[in-house]
Simulated scan of single mutants.
Amino acid sequence: MGLFKKNPFGHYLFIKKWLIRIMGGLTHQRYQGFNDLQIEGSSIIKDLPGRNVLFVSNHQTYFADVVAMYHVFNASLSGRVDNIKNVGYLWDPKLNIYYVAAAETMKKGLLPKVLAYAGSVSIDRTWRADGKSVNRQVKMSDISNIGMALDDGWVITFPQGTTKPWKPIRKGTAFIIKKYKPIVVPIVIDGFRRSFDKKGIRIKKRNILQSMVIKEPLEIDYENEEIESIIEKIEYAIEQHPTFLKVIPESEIKAHESLNEQRRYSSDYKAEKTPKNKDKKNQKES
């Protein structure tokens, strides 16, 4: 690799490699130490082509989800199946992994800017901006940039566009699939919302069982399949279809989300009357 070689977005690969090495080393214990990331299906990763692969996943934090995927993908490519032990797999990371993120999120602070250089394809959300609902046209340059990333390598996207569960899949993901015809690999994650704050930076609770399930690529008829059909397939694949609410009561989900909000914002939450030994027992059971 030449010292001054760039990717299609003008980022120096030498700098990107060192950012991934450093950030990977700093974050490894968040998934293999403070918490326990259980992985299933990572053997699929090694059989994928080097480019035009789109990963679709549910979303729980701004950054922790995608950082975990960088770990899992690179570990799998180095021969580790369903584990991320020994961070040495990041010495020679795959440099053409990208992820789709909201432009406004990636501009707020130094850390998001560093993470953006490591692989963000930043887009302007059509439905929300600065915490307010909006309704604006999709920028064709955003679509083109995602296409450019797919042409160069792998792209991770969170098609619900939010960390809140059970939200609808955005149609833009289906349009991208029909336009660029990538291999679509679903991923289902859990435990990240309980482990980290909303941004995925601060460790909120330790000894949480995190999980990442990588599923077989979806079968899609790129030429003839309707947008709605592709959306429904994604909803089922990442386990965010409304029918899943029949398995997990919505009241339980809302209660769980409310508890997360208390943990995030209440400084008095840790001082509840629950005995320490009981709290430790609950952590292990969760």
Rank of each mutant, 00 (worst) to 15 (best):
I248V: 05
P186A: 07
S211M: 08
K199S: 06
I203Y: 11
I203N: 08
I214F: 15
A174F: 01
Q210S: 12
I227N: 06
I189M: 13
V188C: 15
S211G: 05
P168F: 02
P168T: 04
P217S: 05
N207S: 09
L209M: 06
K204D: 04
N207H: 08
V184F: 07
P182M: 12
R194M: 09
E235P: 14
I176F: 02
T163W: 02
I189T: 05
K171F: 03
R202I: 14
T243H: 05
V184S: 10
K233F: 02
K215Y: 12
I189F: 08
I248T: 03
P217D: 10
I248E: 11
I169N: 02
T243C: 06
K179M: 12
I189S: 07
K199A: 08
E223Q: 11
T173L: 02
F196W: 04
K215T: 10
F192D: 03
E216F: 07
V155I: 06
K233I: 02
E239I: 04
K233L: 01
R202M: 14
I203H: 09
R202L: 08
R206N: 08
P168E: 01
W166T: 01
D197W: 05
V184A: 03
S211D: 06
V184T: 13
D197P: 00
E223A: 14
S229Q: 09
E239D: 05
F196M: 14
K204A: 07
D190E: 12
G161E: 09
Q240F: 09
V247G: 07
R194N: 13
I203R: 10
I208L: 06
N224G: 12
I203P: 00
I208A: 01
R194Y: 04
I201Q: 04
E239Q: 14
V188R: 14
T163A: 15
